[in-house]
Amino acid sequence: MTETNSGRNGRSGSFGDTVAVDLASGRAVDLAELYALDALTDEERQAIEQYMSAAPAAERTEFFDRVRQARETLARTFRIEEQPPADLFDRIVAQLPVQGSGPDAGTPAPPASGHIAGGQFAPRQPASGQPAGAQPAGGDELAQARQRREERRRPGGTRRWLAGVAAAAAIALGGVGVGSYVADQNDPMNQVVRAGDLREASVDVAGGGTATLLISSSEDAAVVKMNGVPAPPAGKVYQMWLIPKDGSAPVSQGLMDEEALSKPAVVEGISSAAALGITVEPAGGSQSPTLPTVAAAPLGA
């Protein structure tokens, strides 16, 4: 395809300098892609819509057909993803206007019911009846206690709903992290996950699985949990790094072997760090990261 301005269907000549010229010269349909791309000013968009509302049906149909196709194309082409903060869904729910039925429309409904169940606060539960947020293996009293605390803190059960839905707080505690923290209420991990400003981020790990971070600026720390990440190759370990904002050398935060992978780890001192990186290193770890990272998560608020 050349960059001459000839119409694709042998239509009239070139695009003009302005949308008004294009509309006047019978090129309205050729504006469909610009329209779909939001590459117009508000005034131009309105001019096109006004034109189309008065246009012959065939022209209008052709235009909106091309708009639709262009939008599908864009949705399939630009597919960047990023995990929103863990509490964002909660904030959205808090703002939902009451819609449809009943005074309890603002109350989280159990997911399986498929309708608003007024006054019913049942959390999402697996068949076993364990609270959402607990490990399916059960018996994790710490996680249950944490959940009870959270439910007390947050009225309306919204937190519970979120925990079930977004799995944000679904990291069950009780494991021993890299630093061998004892899992009691005063340990750093608990302090992080109880922080009021907890955010969640999740990044994919090259080779499979994800790393989930629960980040708290107030605690200046993050909890890192690997999900479904394969064991490091023989003779290798995963090593976590904080990458300082000031551009200085990455600082090792510890090693993870196959066993440690299954346990959440606490990384402290994140305020001066731009990102957390994970690399594969020879057993025993390295002084500086071996690139490329297998996962990197921005920590900036």
């Binding site: 630009f78 597919r79 960047i80 993803e81 990023e82 995990q83 929103p84 964002l88 869904f89 959205i92 729910v93 939902l96 819609q99 449809g100 039925s101 429309a105 989280p108 409904a109 159990p110 997911p111 399986a112 019911s113 498929g114 309708h115 608003i116 709903w161 839905v165 977004a166």
Partner: peptide
């Protein structure tokens, strides 16, 4: 129809795309 559970699932399936963009 005002189904919040459906809204939650919709969010779960699409929020990464929306936020990423």
């Amino acid at each position: 129809r005002g189904d919040q559970a459906a809204f939650a699932e919709f969010y779960q399936l699409t929020s990464r795309r929306v936020f990423g963009m």
